[in-house]
Computed example of a mutant assay.
Amino acid sequence: MKRVEAEVNIYLTKHMTIELEDGEDLDDKVWSIVVSWESRNDERYEKLLLGARLESDDTEEMNLKQKVRMAINRFDPYVLMPGHPDGAPLDEYDCLSDRIYRKLTPAYTVEQIGELIGQEFKRSFEQDFPLSETIHVAQWIYEYIHD
């Protein structure tokens, strides 16, 4: 048996009525509801996913440039949803991920990759991205480089 990493994108539309307390954020509330369904592994969660459109890519067959693109698209801090039917074009972050890819070397640490991601997002969007926001995507890219 071999172990293969895959990226799975699940796109779904579910109309829900949600009760919000004063000051409660809608996105946070929806996320907590969906996560609670998953953690309970109950029938409502299974039914929700049955209506989803599922796409996956075998990362073993991708080159590093494609993996960096996938990681940056998955990071998606502006929720542009590249490639999603209701989102931005699949190449929305390509110039940014290409710049990151061209600067990467195997000597980079996870933190250096995270800082590079933050610098390139700031260059593209003029917004600071601290290491705490980029470290998880940096870890994915680091693992892609060293696998």
Score class of each variant (00 low, 15 high):
residue 88 A to H: 03
residue 75 F to Q: 00
residue 18 I to C: 11
residue 101 Y to R: 03
residue 111 E to Y: 11
residue 9 N to A: 14
residue 92 E to I: 11
residue 20 L to C: 09
residue 47 K to D: 15
residue 59 T to P: 01
residue 110 V to M: 10
residue 55 E to I: 07
residue 68 V to P: 00
residue 14 K to T: 07
residue 118 G to T: 01
residue 115 E to T: 10
residue 56 S to I: 06
residue 62 M to Y: 15
residue 67 K to G: 03
residue 64 L to K: 08
residue 1 M to Q: 11
residue 61 E to Q: 13
residue 3 R to Y: 09
residue 127 Q to W: 02
residue 114 G to H: 01
residue 86 D to R: 14
residue 54 L to F: 15
residue 40 R to S: 14
residue 72 I to M: 04
residue 44 R to K: 09
residue 108 Y to C: 12
residue 61 E to Y: 14
residue 116 L to T: 05
residue 43 E to K: 12
residue 113 I to Y: 01
residue 79 V to F: 06
residue 104 L to P: 03
residue 97 S to P: 02
residue 86 D to V: 07
residue 45 Y to D: 03
residue 126 E to V: 03
residue 68 V to G: 02
residue 97 S to Y: 02
residue 94 D to P: 02
residue 90 L to T: 13
residue 78 Y to V: 01
residue 71 A to H: 01
residue 34 V to W: 06
residue 105 T to R: 15
residue 105 T to V: 12
residue 48 L to K: 01
residue 60 E to G: 14
residue 106 P to A: 08
residue 89 P to D: 15
residue 59 T to V: 07
residue 90 L to S: 14
residue 37 W to S: 05
residue 126 E to D: 15
residue 56 S to D: 07
residue 96 L to P: 00
residue 1 M to E: 13
residue 146 H to A: 09
residue 8 V to P: 04
residue 19 E to M: 11
residue 114 G to D: 02
residue 136 H to M: 14
residue 57 D to W: 11
residue 119 Q to M: 08
residue 109 T to V: 05
residue 97 S to W: 01
residue 60 E to K: 12
residue 20 L to H: 08
residue 121 F to R: 00
residue 20 L to G: 08
residue 73 N to H: 09
residue 23 G to C: 06
residue 99 R to S: 13
residue 86 D to A: 14
residue 112 Q to L: 10
residue 58 D to Q: 07
residue 90 L to V: 15
residue 65 K to F: 04
residue 3 R to W: 05
residue 46 E to M: 06
residue 32 S to V: 10
residue 38 E to M: 14
residue 66 Q to A: 14
residue 11 Y to S: 09
residue 69 R to V: 05
residue 43 E to L: 11
residue 13 T to A: 07
residue 104 L to C: 07
residue 106 P to R: 08
residue 110 V to T: 13
residue 106 P to T: 08
residue 146 H to Y: 09
residue 76 D to K: 01
residue 132 S to V: 11
residue 67 K to L: 15
residue 76 D to Q: 04
residue 143 E to A: 11
residue 22 D to M: 10
residue 117 I to W: 00
residue 127 Q to V: 15
residue 100 I to F: 01
residue 89 P to E: 14
residue 141 I to P: 00
residue 112 Q to E: 15
residue 135 I to T: 06
residue 137 V to H: 00
residue 99 R to Q: 09
residue 26 L to A: 13
residue 34 V to P: 01
residue 117 I to H: 00
residue 101 Y to N: 04
residue 47 K to G: 09
residue 147 D to Y: 09
residue 1 M to A: 15
residue 74 R to V: 12
residue 14 K to A: 12
residue 64 L to H: 11
residue 22 D to C: 05
residue 18 I to N: 09
residue 63 N to G: 12
residue 28 D to C: 04
residue 17 T to W: 05
residue 63 N to K: 12
residue 27 D to W: 04
residue 108 Y to K: 12
residue 54 L to G: 02
residue 8 V to Y: 10
residue 139 Q to D: 13
residue 72 I to E: 00
residue 52 A to P: 04
residue 82 P to W: 02
residue 145 I to F: 06
residue 97 S to I: 03
residue 58 D to A: 10
residue 128 D to V: 15
residue 146 H to M: 05
residue 74 R to I: 12
residue 23 G to F: 07
residue 86 D to I: 06
residue 138 A to E: 02
residue 56 S to Q: 09
residue 129 F to Q: 00
residue 10 I to T: 13
residue 52 A to F: 10
residue 66 Q to H: 13
residue 97 S to R: 02
residue 147 D to A: 11
residue 18 I to M: 12
residue 107 A to W: 05
residue 5 E to H: 06
residue 122 K to Q: 13
residue 16 M to Y: 04
